[in-house]
């Protein structure tokens, strides 16, 4: 893996939200959110189901545009970015969804390498990188399998590998441990902490408080909470 992402930006804020609100169908889901993600920071995002965690993450990677306020990705205002600019920004933002989607007709290895293919980089050049990454997430044996043949934990790890293969500056993970057992969630957490130690900005949406506690023992993590349509900084006692 290449680990050059975060250092290029120096102290620049990677993702910034300024008084962001998001509403749909007339109802306001989120409002008045202001947040700056500094390079190398580690955030947890928690809150009850349906509070808008996934929506918040989508705002962070430009899948949704705020109904008011400003979202800035790497200093660029999302509202001023065209579709291609958003696509290019996503190459610097790795995303792991709760229900990881893959191209089911391609092998796991090809799926993990998909961001490279989509960015027009030759997969052959990145073969070592890919192999190393597959070893890192423990999927070397499964690299020829098709995504539907994978277990929940394997899917999460494949999604994580796909999210980081471009060596992004930020990793956004939505309930990455939602479908896996405790041991697997610990393993995923270790991988995420390792990435953070390499300088990546990490944001994990979860309602698993034991995971947050386990992480806090190993890394300095801030906990954000969405409640009452607002984004709050949770107490340190979690």
């Amino acid at each position: 893996m290449r680990h050059n992402g975060a250092t290029q930006d120096g102290a620049g804020i990677v993702i910034e939200l300024e008084d962001v609100a998001y509403s749909y169908g007339g109802g306001e889901l989120l409002t008045g959110m202001t947040l700056s993600l500094a390079p190398g920071s580690f955030h947890f995002l928690t809150g009850p189901s349906g509070a808008g965690k996934t929506t918040f993450l989508k705002l962070c990677y430009g899948a949704l545009k705020p109904t008011s306020g400003h979202v800035r990705l790497f200093g660029e205002d999302l509202s001023a970015m065209g579709r291609d600019a958003v696509a290019l920004a996503r190459r610097r933002i790795g995303v792991v969804h709760q229900d990881c989607q893959f191209l089911d007709h391609l092998s796991v290895a090809e799926n993990v390498a998909l961001p490279l293919t989509a960015a027009g980089q030759s997969a052959a050049e990145q073969a070592d990188n890919l192999r190393e990454l597959m070893t890192w997430v423990g999927l070397t044996d499964r690299s020829g399998a098709l995504p539907p043949e994978l277990s929940g934990g394997e899917r999460q790890r494949a999604a994580l590998a796909r999210a980081v293969i471009m060596s992004p500056d930020v990793l956004l993970a939505d309930e990455p441990t939602g479908n896996v057992d405790w041991e697997m969630s610990q393993r995923l957490l270790r991988l995420l902490i390792e990435l953070n130690k390499m300088g990546k900005t990490i944001m994990i949406a979860t309602h698993d408080l034991t995971l947050i506690r386990a992480a806090k023992a190993q890394v300095q993590a801030r906990v954000l909470r969405i409640a009452g349509r607002q984004l709050q900084t949770a107490g340190a006692d979690l």
Binding site: A87, R90, R91, L114, A118, G120, R162
Partner: peptide, 16 residues
């Protein structure tokens, strides 16, 4: 639709 969603997610441009 899923293929397109996945490609968008990993940073593929519309042109691609």
């Amino acid at each position: 639709a899923q293929v397109i969603a996945v490609l968008r997610l990993v940073g593929a441009t519309d042109g691609y």
